[in-house]
Design a protein around this nucleic acid. Structure first.
Length: 187
DNA sequence: CCCTGATTCGC
DNA sequence: GCGAATCAGG
């Protein structure tokens, strides 16, 4: 695929509308978002603003190394003995209630009422959920539990989380509700 | 990891 | 001019 006037025009239009490069690429077809961005730059409309005289970052620094924050406080609650000797404590085969490491579990909706819209979106999400098991959960899979933990019919949503938060978009919606909406609903 | 745009550089 | 690879950020 090449940049015909036709396609360039679509590019300009969509970019002007604030569409993302990937969206534009998808629309045009045959090009990647990189191609779109590259073209955008060559066309000189990288800055969506009109005539910003912003000198921007004229001079770039090239730090030879990546500082990459020290971080990782990581709270380790258990285990402090480096030498467990030979005392292979029998594994307790019945942790009645399985709690995912560290992460706070959401209050189960159970009998509680949630916003109809949010509830609806959750129902829909559950249909395309990835149904992950506990081990499959990662830092960025939605940790919203579905079903009864006591049965086989239990899994975690597993969809991509919404940055930072432990849940996907839909579940964030039902997990973090303003108290205003749940007020007076009971009565 | 999902995404965004920005830049570089071989083609 | 092109765009994949890379970089930098959310």
């Amino acid at each position: 695929m090449s940049w015909t006037d036709d396609r360039v025009e679509i590019l300009k239009k969509m970019w002007g509308e604030g569409k993302s490069a990937s969206q534009i690429a998808k629309e045009l077809g045959g090009v990647t978002r990189n191609a779109v961005i590259g073209k955008v730059h060559r066309l000189g409309l990288s800055n969506r603003s009109g005539g910003a005289t912003a000198a921007k970052t004229a001079d770039k620094e090239k730090p030879a190394a990546k500082p990459k924050a020290p971080e990782k406080p990581k709270v380790v609650a258990t285990e402090s003995d480096p030498k467990p000797a030979n005392t292979p404590v029998k594994v307790m085969p019945r942790p009645k209630l399985v709690v995912t490491a560290g992460q706070p579990l959401p209050p189960q909706p159970s009998a509680n009422e949630i916003s109809p819209e949010a509830l609806a979106s959750v129902r829909e999400v559950e249909k395309k959920a990835k149904k992950l098991s506990v081990m499959e959960l990662t830092e960025r899979t939605c940790k919203w539990p579905v079903g009864d933990p006591a049965t086989e019919d239990f899994w975690f949503c597993g969809l991509p989380v919404q940055s930072g938060k432990p849940y996907c978009e839909a579940h964030v919606g039902v997990a973090f509700q303003p108290m205003s909406s749940r007020r007076d609903r009971k009565r």
